[in-house]
Design a protein around this nucleic acid. Structure first.
Lengths: 350, 350
DNA sequence: TAGCTTAACGGTATCGTTAACTCTATCGAA
DNA sequence: TTCGATAGAGTTAACGATACCGTTAAGCTA
């Protein structure tokens, strides 16, 4: 196809090895020779054949990413920052979406392993660890992100999900909510830990934990927002309805808010709502939604850093765990004490 | 590392070639031998080394995708469906984001070419064709998506952007708008053609084209929504303000809507607004936004089909151009009259 | 001058797979 | 019987790069 080392070597009257050394910055080459080689390399537009290089070095220069949903802005942003960070070091990212389906996730991971990767980065929707033991057997290093797995001590980058639950719930307490409900997420580590944070904040705030106020994410093959609406329906049918709701994520919160608004309730006057994710359209909603920032970009960057560290060290480096702290983003949906602003848009909604 | 063909061959007392033939479904193998090989392959968990395969076949089994913005749901969905479609055929997708920057795009493309790809799929933010001539010289086939380039006859998959402009504008006419404005997108083919469609629909509807009603996308390093708000500000400062607005995309429309609402205007009563993209949060906005569906999933699938066709044909296949037709999604932001009136008008128009 | 170190370069084997042949039975038809 | 066709296997030679080790020449020390 293109021009090979061999061509340049013949051209310059040196050996192929010398070319190879120049390109890899090996010291065993004289300055004059190095200069001639580099000039010719540029002139001929030589590009190394990575397949050949892979074959002998055993590296593929590829990193795989498996996430539950590539369309979710949180994961999309992770993918983007990860890809950019890897690219800077000559590595490329292959992405994969598991659609929150453990079986599909396994299939995707197997396909990626078959492809041959230097590292695998996974936000797993699985609750068991067996698959990961198998990955370890295959000698492909991996980094978990977002979702930790109990009983698996491995590299991890994510947010402190208990703190997420605490920050959000404490904010609701701070604005004066007394009956705070929680719409849960899936039964993965973020879902569990955010609920724990919610409970802990309630306890610290001197509020009782009411089991009826904790709604499991409704099942069914419908959009997340519809599940949020269904959860809100359940909450509103209770004898004493809550006055504040912490939702596992923003789409759930959107669904819940819209259902409440449709029922004629006012947000935040009747019910305050806070989500998590700080999605980029949160402030354009009918009622701008308070949320908790998850630092998706940082997660991608840290995951890239760890991945490269693993790849570049001969011996397995020590296991790293990066836990980021969440950040409250307060908007109108929890703005309990200034009813002034809730005018023009509320009217337009009609 | 893992288990190789050699191991299986030694194990079974046959030659490596036979294993290779079995794995490639070559006919020159007896059924009994084939069975024994497959059984052992499965038992030992053999995975082919793609680097070695690449070296001899000259294929990398990788397809590259370059889009202006990976976080934009339109492109995210294309990436997702493309990746899934390719995976079914043993190909993998590497994604790249150019951030609407032509220079960065060139850099990303060069990096991807260096990596070695079987095909490149590009939604280009460039307006010149020179880069693509260079790509052609490098012998990497490519497919353009979403944005066509004038003077470049090549494989293309996208939507009929003139039809987008016509469908949206005609809808505004149908609901009774008389003074229809347009907030433009970037100066790429979709931006230009949608405006042409807008003008053509106005002409067909017997409305005058008023240059003041055509607002170029405001510049500046701000979010798209803020640009939409700024455009709306300009429109509202006109002596006679428009009563309907077709926006190049949904984020622009969101910004425009929110600005109008904040100014105390009612949507759709005072101004009807329609965007394009049918983003998945359109119906959760303060006023659910009418839009035009761009069939992003189909675009990804068609691009994958063409890419695979190119890869699998020895001779370059004939150039394909797939133009999808847009689809109106009417929501509250254009719900001017009762449904009855709207349909009768549409019927009257023929 | 012998012996040693160091800089600069080259030879050879190898990575795991496939393409393009070649070889050898077996079988049926002439 | 003999010939050729055919099915099923194997032989050989790449593919393009790197690792490992060896070689050479120059410079230095004693």
């Amino acid at each position: 196809m293109g021009v090979r080392m061999k061509d340049i070597a013949r051209d310059l009257g040196v050996s192929v090895i010398t070319i190879s050394k120049v390109l890899r910055n090996h010291p065993d080459v004289g300055d004059e020779t190095r200069g001639r080689v580099l000039a010719r390399v540029k002139e001929l537009g030589y590009r190394p054949n990575l397949a050949a290089r892979s074959l002998v070095t055993g590296r593929t220069y590829l990193v795989g990413l498996v996430v539950p949903d590539l369309l979710h802005p949180f994961f999309a942003e992770i993918a983007k920052s990860l890809s950019a960070a890897l690219r800077k070091h000559g590595y490329y990212l292959i992405v994969s979406s598991s659609e929150e389906d453990p079986d599909l996730e396994e299939q995707e991971i197997n396909q990626l392993l078959e492809r041959g990767l230097d590292t695998l980065i996974i936000a797993s929707c699985r609750s068991t660890v067996d698959l990961f033991f198998r990955i370890e057997k295959q000698n492909t290093p991996y980094v978990l992100i977002d979702r930790a797995l109990p009983g698996l001590s491995t590299n991890f980058v994510g947010i402190d999900d208990e703190a997420v639950g605490m920050v959000a719930t404490r904010h609701l307490i701070d604005i004066g909510c007394k009956r705070i409900a929680h719409i849960r997420g899936p039964e993965t580590s973020p879902g569990i830990r955010r609920m724990e944070g919610y409970k802990r904040a309630l306890a610290q705030g001197g509020l009782k934990i009411i089991e009826d106020y904790i709604i499991a994410e409704p099942k069914g093959d419908v959009e997340t927002r519809q599940r949020g609406a269904e959860a809100m329906r359940q909450l509103l049918s209770l004898k004493t309805r809550p006055d504040g709701i912490f939702c596992f994520n923003d789409p759930l919160a959107m669904g819940a808010m819209n259902y409440a608004l449709d029922q004629g309730l006012r947000i935040p006057e009747d019910i305050a709502v806070i989500g998590c994710g700080n999605l980029h359209y949160d402030d354009a909603l009918s009622v701008p939604l308070s949320s908790v920032n998850q630092h998706s970009r940082r997660i991608g960057e840290e995951a890239a850093r760890i991945a490269l560290a693993i790849i570049n060290s001969k011996i397995p480096p020590k296991i790293e765990s990066v836990i980021l702290q969440p950040e409250l983003v307060a908007r109108r949906s929890t703005q309990r004490h200034s009813a002034k602003q809730a005018t023009s848009r509320a009217r337009a909604r009609g």
